[in-house]
C-alpha cells in the first residue's frame, strides 16, 4: 500500500458515511458566508481603505492623462522615470510625459512596473491580478514602485463579488491570482511595521476610466 492509500484508508476506517452528493451540491452552490457591510459608494470606500494600507491614490477622468499624473508623482518622490508596463498600457502617451515605459515583463533591474488589474475590492482596498501572457506577475512584484491603472467601474464590493466576476469571465482561475493590498511589508523585527520587504516599496493606484 502506498502512502496515499494508507492515509486515506486510515481516514476511511473512522469515516464510513459517503457524502458525495452533499459535496457536489456544496461545490455547485458555493454559498457565501456572512458578509461585512460595504458602503454603497464603492469608489470612495476603496480609496479610503487602500490609503489606510499605505497605497497612494490618484484620479483622472481621462486615461490619456495617466502618464502626466505618474510623471508628476515620480518627480515629487524623486524616483526614476523609466520602467516597464503591461502591453495593454503600451499605447498611452508615456514619452510625451517624459517617461520611458517598455512593454515587457519586469526584470530585476526595472524600478517602475505599471500594470492594470482584473478588478479591485472596496471592502479591503485590494487589487485582484490574474496572471497570463499579457499580464505578467513579475511587473507588480520585482520593481520598487508598482503603479496600477484601474477603471473605477471595476471596483466590486467584496472578494465574493470578485470570484463571481472571475467565474463569469474565465472558466477557471489562471495559474496565479494575486490579491495585492499596498506595498510589501514586514514586522518581523520588534513587531515594527516597515514598508518594502521583498516586493514593492510603494504602490500607486491611478483610477482612470478605460
Amino acid at each position: 500500500m502506498n502512502a496515499r492509500e494508507k492515509i486515506l484508508s486510515k481516514i476511511r476506517s473512522v469515516q464510513t458515511k459517503s457524502s458525495a452528493p452533499a459535496i457536489s451540491f456544496h461545490l455547485a452552490q458555493h454559498p457565501r458566508g456572512p458578509l461585512p457591510p460595504v458602503p454603497p459608494d464603492l469608489i470612495a470606500c476603496f480609496k479610503e481603505r487602500a490609503i489606510k494600507l499605505s497605497s497612494d491614490v490618484l484620479e483622472t477622468n481621462n486615461r490619456v492623462d495617466v502618464p502626466t499624473l505618474l510623471a508628476r508623482y515620480l518627480h515629487e518622490k524623486n524616483l526614476p522615470v523609466s520602467g516597464v508596463c503591461w502591453p495593454s498600457l503600451a499605447g498611452l502617451p508615456w514619452s510625451a510625459a517624459g517617461l520611458d515605459m517598455q512593454s515587457r515583463p519586469a526584470k530585476n533591474s526595472d524600478l517602475i512596473g505599471v500594470t492594470g488589474a482584473f478588478c479591485a475590492i472596496a471592502e479591503t482596498g485590494t487589487l485582484m491580478m490574474l496572471s497570463g501572457p499579457d499580464t505578467p506577475a513579475t511587473t507588480s512584484l520585482l520593481p520598487e514602485t508598482h503603479v496600477a491603472v484601474l477603471d473605477p467601474r471595476h471596483i466590486v464590493a467584496t472578494m465574493e463579488d470578485a470570484w463571481d466576476l472571475l467565474r463569469k469571465e474565465h472558466r477557471q482561475p489562471p495559474r496565479a491570482v494575486n490579491f495585492i493590498s499596498g506595498p510589501s511589508r514586514t514586522a518581523d523585527i520588534e513587531q515594527t511595521v516597515t514598508l518594502g520587504a521583498h516586493g514593492p516599496y510603494r504602490v500607486l493606484l491611478i483610477l482612470a476610466p478605460l
Binding site: R49, G132, R175
Partner: peptide, 24 residues
Amino acid sequence: ATGQSITNYVSVLTGKKNAEDHDG
C-alpha cells in the same frame, strides 16, 4: 494573527505555468 484586515498578498496558485506565460 497580526491585526491586519487583509495581508498584503493573498496568492491563489493553480497548476503550472502555461506555455505562453512569461512567469510561473
